[in-house]
Amino acid sequence: MLNKVPEITAFFWVIKILCTTIGESAADYVNVTLGVGLIATTLITAVLLVVALVVQFRLDRYVPSVYWTVVALVSVVGTLITDNLTDNLGVSLWISTGVFLVLLLLTFGVWYRTERTLSIHSIVTTRREAFYWLVVVVTFALGTAAGDLLIDQLQTGLLAAVLIYAAAIAVVFVAYRFGLGATLSFWIAYVLTRPLGGSLGDFLSGDRSEGGAGLGTLLTSLLFLAAIVATVVYLSVTRVDRTERVAVRR
């Protein structure tokens, strides 16, 4: 099995933010605009995610179209997990943020204790891939809770939330350049890109009366879906994010 995760390039972060943004806007569109309902939307997207994961696990290498389909679906499901806890079960965003943070740290702990590495450049076994996707799901749920907490509970404006999380990621990048470990830097940035993308989705789709851009959830979802498809096609053709290609060059 070759490494199942793409090389971390600028394209990785661009498409990650695109996926997180569409996760927020698509979940809102299906749940609210179409009136499907929170529970039904969660069940439908969860089934789609399971199917995509089955395909992903059956592969022996990284395939951009499959990998990023899983990420996009995880983004939607992660958003809905937090929304269900908040809207249907009345769980405080403070509590859900804390619980998901603890769960993430525990998952990292078990992953490291079992595999002795948290590097995404070593996802070459089924067990490591299972740990990887479990962490990804938790990061999306955590990012959703943290993003909603900042906007809803702390009364932060939509655009202000985008700028705050963008600044936080910039700080992580600077810290990485000054010696913060690559693995730690990656996972901190990975968590932060979820509320960044979610806040961006809320800003673009939100009504202008609420400080948003007024594009609506459907138009926002379609625009970002088109950008995702275009980027995935580019990566599939150029293969610039294939780790096995990097290994050959070295």
Results as ranks from 00 to 15, higher is better:
Glu129Phe: 11
Thr20Met: 06
Val47Asp: 00
Phe108Gln: 11
Leu218Gly: 03
Thr45Val: 08
Leu142Ser: 03
Asn84Cys: 09
Ala175Gly: 07
Phe11Lys: 05
Arg245Phe: 13
Ile44Cys: 07
Leu104His: 06
Asp148Ser: 14
Thr126Ser: 13
Thr243Lys: 08
Arg58Ala: 12
Leu34Gln: 09
Val172Lys: 01
Val30Glu: 01
Phe186Trp: 10
Arg208Ala: 07
Ile151Gln: 13
Tyr234Asp: 00
Val246Gly: 00
Ala168Gln: 00
Ala230Leu: 15
Phe224Asn: 06
Val30Thr: 07
Trp13Cys: 05
Tyr132Ser: 06
Leu218Ser: 04
Thr193Glu: 02
Arg249Leu: 15
His121Leu: 12
Ala160Cys: 00
Leu215Ser: 07
Phe11Thr: 10
Tyr62Pro: 04
Phe203Thr: 09
Val135Trp: 03
Ala26His: 06
Thr33Asn: 13
Ala52Ser: 14
Leu103Cys: 14
Leu106Cys: 13
Tyr132His: 14
Thr45Asp: 04
Ser122Ala: 15
Tyr67Met: 11
Arg194Asn: 11
Arg177Cys: 00
Ile8Met: 12
Ala130Arg: 08
Val240Thr: 10
Ile22Phe: 02
Val76Gln: 07
Arg177Met: 02
Asn3Tyr: 08
Ala167Trp: 11
Phe173Ala: 12
Leu73Thr: 01
Leu103Tyr: 06
Ile81Glu: 08
Thr217Cys: 06
Thr114Asp: 10
Gln153Val: 14
Thr97Tyr: 03
Thr243Arg: 12
Arg208Phe: 05
Val70His: 09
Ala72Asn: 07
Glu244Thr: 08
Ala26Thr: 14
Asp148Asn: 14
Tyr132Glu: 04
Lys4Asn: 10
Gln155His: 15
Leu200Cys: 00
Gly214His: 12
Lys16Arg: 04
Arg242His: 13
Ala52Thr: 04
Leu163Val: 11
Phe57Thr: 04
Gly197Tyr: 01
Ala130Gln: 09
Phe57Asn: 11
Leu43Ser: 12
Thr117Ser: 15
Thr220Val: 11
Ser25Thr: 15
Ala72His: 03
Ala166Cys: 03
Ala40His: 09
Ile22Val: 13
Leu142Tyr: 06
Ala175Trp: 05
Leu18Tyr: 13
Ala168His: 04
Leu106Gln: 07
Leu38Gly: 03
Val232Ala: 08
Val233Asn: 00
Thr114Pro: 00
Thr82Cys: 09
Thr107Leu: 14
Ser119Met: 05
His121Val: 08
Ile44Lys: 01
Ile120Asp: 02
Leu163Lys: 05
Ser65Pro: 03
Glu210Asp: 15
Leu106His: 03
Glu24Pro: 01
Tyr190Ser: 12
Ser236Met: 11
Ala230Glu: 05
Val5Ala: 04
Leu204Val: 15
Val30Cys: 02
Asn3Gln: 04
Ala213Asp: 08
Leu142Gln: 04
Asp87Gly: 00
Val233Tyr: 02
Ala167Ile: 12
Leu222Ala: 14
Ala182Cys: 00
Leu38Val: 06
Gln56Gly: 02
Ser92Arg: 03
Tyr112Met: 08
Ala230Cys: 09
Thr107Ser: 15
Leu154Thr: 14
Leu34Lys: 14
Thr82Lys: 04
Thr238Ile: 07
Phe224Val: 05
Leu163Gln: 10
Arg249Gln: 10
Thr193Gly: 00
Leu218Thr: 08
Ala170Met: 13
Arg116Tyr: 11
Leu105Asn: 02
Phe140Met: 12
Val74Arg: 01
